[in-house]
Design a protein around this nucleic acid. Structure first.
Length: 415
RNA sequence: GUGGGUGUAGCUCAGUUGGUUAGAGCACCAGAUUGUGGCUCUGGGGGCCGGGGGUUCAAAUCCCCUCACUCACCCCA
């Protein structure tokens, strides 16, 4: 027997519908905020991700699905959405149009990781990217959009924000941090990080490392005046629109392209998979990918994890809907032909395909949660009538066959 | 990638110190009711006991390998 590849999943109808609604709500929200959809391929040249996400990140070092095609190009299934959108932004010279330019995407991403609940090798993200504004209120808008998504769904998320400075002041800070940590009691992993990506020592969970970090220099002390002002305005902007947040100086995101604002939406209900979404500003990325210097800010939300939170907004109203035909040989085909036009009227119509007993057909009607059954057996047909039964109340009445389609398609709860 | 836990019917799970045809509840199908769902009762179909190998007269049970899920680490969505 074949098994689904590790870390991937099938979405059976009920769950697929939940996912579809999560997408619809996200798309409606993005439209409301003035974002247009930008669809990019599911794979890109490997180099794009290596350059933009960062050579020394976990994603690039060990999580990419990379393959060679028949033309011996190295391609990679996208591990995140921003790189492709930035590539498209540059390649299509979208920076030449009016700015800011705002795009959203929704789709699967791929990361080769050891799976766990809430951590998959094929995962879905919804994201937005805002190009061409350096203004703190652009950061605030993006953060607010994500916040509103969780609010609309009724999902409890905690917003955590930080500023990791710009190229200049982060450089200063890195130097200071390395100088401070060198020779101190930190774990082996962090010793390696110290050389390649020192900021990541900050969110190490190793007790010894955290202890050493207590007295370590803080990024806030190193932010240049411009970065400081930017961060203050972001925080003020969030407060102005009543979005609560906490500041965490150890929030360092695992992608290299971020600068200044970084943020995450966290939960404490999913074990160690606590990030529902996150994002930040990436003012240098467009240039890095070959475009002009265009500042940008964006976010990505994890749809799989959001669904795991069992959003109250996805609860279905339980009411019955639609019509079930109950009939019997030798007139079944005639009965079906009589009611089929209901489908063209948009009525939810079902009937037995297996030649089951009368009783069994009512059972199916019940199980399919139908509001009405329409009974058309040999006797009814002979009298030119059908029997309509209300499955909620059990009441029945007769209908003339000539007016059946019109009568039934105007009933309550059939569409 | 490292370490732990768990895999028995569609689902949730029993299964004794290894012992003969592997069970229950729910779900499914049928009958009780030859034109009426939900409730009840009766019956029925369904299992390479995750897969492979080994020990043994005998393995769901013990051992090894492997696959999957899961928890923690790691990382993030």
């Amino acid at each position: 027997m074949y098994q689904i590849p590790r870390g991937t999943r099938d979405f059976l109808p009920e769950q697929a519908e939940r996912f579809r609604r999560l997408e619809e709500i996200a798309v409606a929200l993005a439209c409301q905020y003035g974002y247009g959809e930008l669809r990019t391929p599911i794979f890109e040249h490997s180099e794009l991700f290596a350059r933009s996400v960062g050579e020394s990140t976990d994603i690039v070092e060990k999580e990419m699905y990379t393959f060679q095609d028949r033309g011996e190009r190295s391609l990679t299934l996208r591990p995140e959405g921003t790189a492709g959108v930035v590539r498209a932004f540059v390649e299509n010279k979208l920076y030449g149009g009016s700015l800011p330019a705002k795009y959203y995407y929704f789709g699967p991403m791929f990361r080769y990781e050891k799976p766990q609940a809430g951590r998959y090798r094929q995962l879905w993200q919804f994201g937005v990217e805002l190009f061409g504004s350096e203004a703190p209120r652009a950061d605030v808008e993006v953060i607010a959009l994500g916040w509103q998504y969780f609010q609309e769904l009724g999902v409890k998320a905690n917003l955590v924000i930080n500023s990791i400075g710009c190229r200049q002041c982060r450089g200063e800070y890195k130097k200071a941090l390395v100088a401070y940590l060198t020779g101190r009691n930190i774990c082996e992993l962090c010793s390696n990080r110290l050389e390649r990506n020192p900021l990541r020592v900050l969110d190490c969970k190793e007790e010894s490392c955290q202890k050493e970090l207590e007295e370590a220099p803080r990024i806030s002390q190193y932010l240049c005046p411009q970065c400081q002002e930017h961060f203050q305005k972001v925080k003020a902007g969030l407060s102005d629109i009543s979005i609560p947040f906490t500041q965490d100086e150890r929030l360092v995101r695992g992608l290299d392209y971020y600068n200044r604002t970084t943020f995450e939406y966290k939960t404490n209900e999913l074990g160690s998979q606590d990030a529902l979404g996150g994002g930040g500003r990436y003012d240098d990325l467009v240039e890095l990918v070959g475009g002009p210097a265009v500042p940008a800010v964006g976010l990505a939300l994890g749809i799989d994890r959001t669904e795991l939170m069992d959003p109250p907004a996805l609860k279905k109203a339980p009411g019955r809907r639609g019509v079930w035909l109950v009939t019997m040989e030798p007139v079944s085909d005639q009965a079906i032909a009589l009611v089929h036009p209901l489908r063209q009227q948009g009525v939810h119509l079902g009937y037995d395909l297996a030649g089951r007993s009368f009783k069994a057909q009512f059972k199916q009607a019940d199980r399919n949660n139908c509001r009405w059954t329409l009974i058309i057996g040999p006797d009814d047909l002979a009298q030119g009538q059908a029997v309509l039964r209300d499955m909620d109340t059990g009441e029945q009445r007769q209908l003339a066959l000539e007016s059946l389609v019109e009568m039934v398609s105007n009933l309550e709860g059939v569409k």
